[in-house]
Design a protein around this nucleic acid. Structure first.
Lengths: 158, 158
DNA sequence: ATAACTGCAAAGGCTTTGCATGGAT
DNA sequence: ATCCATGCAAAGCCTTTGCAGTTAT
């Protein structure tokens, strides 16, 4: 089987070796439900493989994404985060601390229908994320104040 | 009037000066419908203000966003883009070339209702972007092949 | 005089890449 | 032997920041 990577290069799935590094990275990511960044995962993996390098983490996360084992969350203006669950699902992001959780609703399969006939694009899909405050930041006065200002200018950066 | 910036610092709206740089940056951005990156806008502004610096572009784009004059599109895993239209609206992004256009549909105001009672977050809003191929890339064989692979693995990075 | 703003260049944060080495087939 | 994968460090890219000089009030 073959895949195309981000730069449109062919990746031959069957030539991949399940190296120890690759396996541990995948295992540790699958254990998390926190959608870690590359360096967070690096710290975790380092407990099992002390000599692993950050470059290897990045290379494998990209590869695992290309072959569809995991997904890369390229989220609005922040560090990339990685998700061990490959099936499509939405996320909720805390606008104050950046925490990301799964959004417990089913994919909206017919959203792109709304665009039929209204755009010159060939529409293939959509990306949806919910914004809000996580339970911890909901307790934090400053975070609430910040979030209220965001509500006043809902289109600013988060 | 006061606003909070990204780092939760107070910005006093009434102390802002409409300098020539700030005005030209805003004017040129408002002329565009291409959602330019900072450096694209820099090139445009430089035609009128040859000595302007990229730092000034970034500083003003952030400021104008904070006071709600424009919006910063912090889009999945790419350079920031800026939009002279401050009202909420969605975008369509070409997964191959990165081009971004406005999506001609009205905001879905009741989307977050679906999350009521299902999450510990205080939900405040959502972000939605459509993915597809722009008319030019729809003609490009390689782009179409790439997009088809994305469809096979709909959760990879774009 | 004060405070905001600018240009310039340097620093920063995150990610990718080159290269020599190591390991599996 | 070949080719993929790794560790390390350097480079890259975009963005932010420090600072000295400038401008408006």
């Amino acid at each position: 089987m073959h895949c195309l990577d981000k730069k449109n290069h062919l990746v031959s799935n069957d030539k991949l070796r399940m190296t120890q590094q690759r396996r541990v990275i995948l295992e540790e990511l699958r254990k998390e439900n926190t959608h870690p960044t590359a360096d967070q995962l690096y710290e975790t993996v380092r407990k099992r493989l002390p000599h692993v390098s950050l470059g290897t983490i990045y290379r494998n996360l990209e590869l695992l994404t290309t072959i569809g084992e995991i997904q890369t969350l390229e989220i609005a203006g922040s560090q990339k985060r990685y998700d061990g669950v490959a099936q499509q699902h939405y996320h909720v992001r805390c606008v104050y601390c950046g925490r990301i959780d799964d959004a417990p609703i089913a994919p909206l399969n017919r959203l792109e229908d709304k665009l039929y006939g209204t755009t010159v694009y060939t529409i293939m899909g959509h990306r949806l994320e919910f914004l809000g405050l996580c339970p911890e930041c909901s307790q934090n006065e400053e975070a609430v104040r910040f979030a209220e200002h965001l509500l006043a200018h809902p289109n600013g950066p988060n």
